[in-house]
């Protein structure tokens, strides 16, 4: 074929673009969209750890509480003294720099350690999520040690998603959580330099712990406010939000009309202006 190089480029570019777009489109979104476009298939989606609306684990308790092994207390104490006691004191009774941890319960301790918020990098700013410094066994040992110091507080919850309802979770999430974490769970800045963090990295246990213990600026949701079943429902919905149904295509970070506007103007109008530049040409 005697395609002129320039012209060949002109044809090949849109073609390549189109093919690439369709291939990535299919590859990226076939899962979510398949669940959406085929009624019935949604109940057996295997791509998410969440079972859509399913109640396969029904009958079992929605949340069980972890019984910490007393034999790990010694290890926990060692770790606590090494990593935490400089601020919280050897017996976790608190110092001028950090609060008393006694009687807060294993769930509180576990949330702060397992999300990497503690030990704190910089005591002046809001604790941020980062990789935990410990192994899970070490975390549980610290939890066991601190909760052995004084009774009280919630234990570490383990959520049985099979016994939870996704759609009930949506209702509860939108009532209780969306006001700060946004309806898609990305989080946003609050007043006074703090922020509601994104829920995307959270594990089921961490979500349940946060709901019950209200870390930082987050309100506390006790059993009189949300039942155990309801907490499990919320956890299930948050896990869904971590891999939501992006039937429409690229999710744009789920931050709503702000990014949509930029895409519409820069990519939509922008590419059309380039096309117009090609068609209309410049001043002659």
């Amino acid at each position: 074929m005697k395609f002129g190089k320039k012209l060949g480029g002109r044809v090949l570019f849109p073609v390549a673009l189109g093919v690439a777009a369709s291939v990535t489109g299919m590859a990226l979104f076939s899962q979510g969209a398949a669940a959406a476009t085929t009624p019935g298939s949604s109940n057996s989606s295997s791509t998410n750890s969440v079972t859509y609306g399913g109640t396969s684990g029904a009958g079992k308790a929605p949340i069980t509480y972890l019984k910490l092994d007393p034999s790990t207390i010694a290890l926990g104490k060692t770790l606590f003294v090494e990593n935490c006691s400089s601020c919280h004191g050897d017996t976790a009774a608190g110092t001028s720099r950090a609060p008393n941890l006694q009687g807060l319960g294993a769930a509180t301790i576990d949330f702060w350690i397992s999300t990497g918020r503690m030990p704190l990098a910089d005591p002046t700013v809001q604790a941020t999520e980062k990789p935990s410094r410990f192994t899970r066994a070490q975390e549980l040992a610290i939890d066991a040690y601190v909760s052995s110091l004084a009774p009280g507080g919630p234990a570490i919850p383990q959520v049985n998603l099979g016994a939870a309802s996704l759609s009930a979770g949506q209702g509860l999430f939108s009532t209780n959580c969306a006001a700060c974490h946004t309806i898609t769970g990305v989080g946003d800045a609050l007043a006074g330099g703090v922020y509601a963090p994104s829920l995307y990295p959270a594990t089921t246990t961490q979500i349940a712990e946060a709901v019950r213990t209200g870390p930082g600026n987050m309100p506390r949701f006790g059993t009189g406010n949300l039942s155990t079943q309801q907490v499990a429902d919320i956890v299930k919905y948050v896990k869904y939000l971590q891999h939501p149904n992006n039937a429409g295509g690229i999710g744009l970070g789920h931050v709503g009309p702000v990014t949509e506007g930029f895409v519409g103007i820069l990519i939509g109008l922008g590419s059309l202006m380039i096309a117009g530049y090609w068609i209309g040409g410049r001043a002659r």
Binding site: G171, I183, D188, P244, N245, I250, G256, I265
Partner: peptide, 25 residues
């Protein structure tokens, strides 16, 4: 490119609200 995924927003119920509410550009 997904725009306005209303299924993620849920139905309007007057006492519910989401943070980061913006209108279209």
């Amino acid at each position: 490119v997904q725009i306005n995924p209303i299924w993620m927003y849920g139905p309007y119920i007057p006492y519910k609200v989401s943070y980061a509410v913006q209108p279209d550009w």
